[in-house]
C-alpha cells in the first residue's frame, strides 16, 4: 500500500512539475483575489473577522481551481484504466490524491499568506504565524479530503467544471466556519489571542469524519 501510494504520488508531483498546470494558477488566482478584495471593499488594511474571512474565502476558491483539475488527466488520458488494471488497493489512489492536493494547498499558502500579509493585513503577520499554521493545516486536511472525494465524483460527469464547485462548497462550509472563527482572533489589531480550542476541535473532528467517509466510499467511484 505505501509503495503504491509513493509511486502514485511521485507520478502526480512529476506531472505537476512538468506541466505546471494547477499550482501556479492557484497562487496567481489567490494574489489577484486579494487585489479584487482591496477594490471591492475599498479598504487598504483589514483585520479581525474581515481579514479571516478574506483569507479563507480566497484560499477556498483557489483550492477549488486545483480540485477541478485533480482527476482530469486521469479521466481523459486513461490514468483510471491503467490504475484499475494494476493489482493494487484502490484506496492508494485516494491517499495519493489527498496528499497531492495537500501539497498543492501548502504551496498555495506559502505564496498567498505572505502576499496577504503584505497587501491587505493591518497587524503584522509574524506574531500570528505559529498558530495560523496550525489552523491552516487542519483546514487544509479537510479541504484536501473533501476536494478529492468531490473531484472524483464530478470528473466523469458531463458538466464537471460546474458540478465540482457546486458539490464542494456546501460541504466545505463547516471548514470555513471553523477556520475563519479560529483565525479571526489571531488577526485582531488589538490584543490578538490564540484561537478557541472548540474551533480546532470542530475542524479536527470534521476532517476525521470526512476522512472515514471518503475511505468508505472512494472504491465505488472507481469501478469502471
Amino acid at each position: 500500500m505505501s509503495r503504491t501510494v509513493a509511486a502514485l504520488l511521485r507520478k502526480e508531483l512529476l506531472v505537476e512539475l512538468r506541466t505546471l498546470e494547477s499550482v501556479p494558477a492557484m497562487s496567481l488566482f489567490a494574489v489577484t483575489t486579494f487585489v479584487v478584495f482591496h477594490f471591492a471593499l475599498n479598504r487598504s488594511v483589514v483585520d479581525g473577522d474581515l481579514a479571516a474571512g478574506i483569507l479563507w474565502v480566497t484560499l477556498l476558491f483557489a483550492a477549488i481551481l486545483g480540485v477541478n483539475r485533480l482527476f482530469v488527466a486521469d479521466a481523459d488520458q486513461g490514468g483510471f484504466d491503467a490504475f484499475l488494471l494494476a493489482p493494487v488497493d484502490r484506496t492508494a489512489m485516494l491517499v495519493a490524491k489527498v496528499i497531492t492536493l495537500l501539497a498543492y494547498l501548502v504551496v498555495l499558502e506559502l505564496v498567498a499568506v505572505p502576499a496577504f500579509g503584505l497587501l491587505l493585513l493591518g497587524p503584522s503577520i509574524g506574531d500570528a504565524l505559529p498558530d495560523l499554521i496550525g489552523v491552516l493545516a487542519l483546514g487544509d486536511l479537510g479541504v484536501a479530503v473533501i476536494g478529492t472525494l468531490v473531484a472524483a465524483l464530478a470528473v466523469r460527469t458531463r458538466a464537471r467544471d460546474l458540478l465540482g464547485p457546486l458539490l464542494g462548497l456546501p460541504l466545505l462550509v463547516p471548514i470555513v466556519i471553523g477556520g475563519a472563527r479560529a483565525t479571526s482572533p489571531l488577526l485582531a489589531s488589538v490584543h490578538p489571542t490564540a484561537p478557541a480550542a472548540r474551533w480546532l476541535l470542530t475542524l479536527g473532528l470534521y476532517d476525521l469524519v470526512f476522512g472515514l467517509i471518503a475511505y468508505a466510499l472512494f472504491d465505488f467511484l472507481l469501478e469502471d
Binding site: I177, I213, L221
Partner: peptide, 23 residues
C-alpha cells in the same frame, strides 16, 4: 452508483453541519 455515494456523503453531512452551525 455515483448518486448513492453522493447520498451517503450528504446524509452524513446533515448532522455534522447542524453541529458546526450551532457552534
Amino acid at each position: 452508483r455515483y448518486a448513492s455515494v453522493f447520498a451517503i456523503t450528504a446524509g452524513a453531512f446533515v448532522p455534522l453541519n447542524f453541529m458546526a452551525v450551532r457552534l
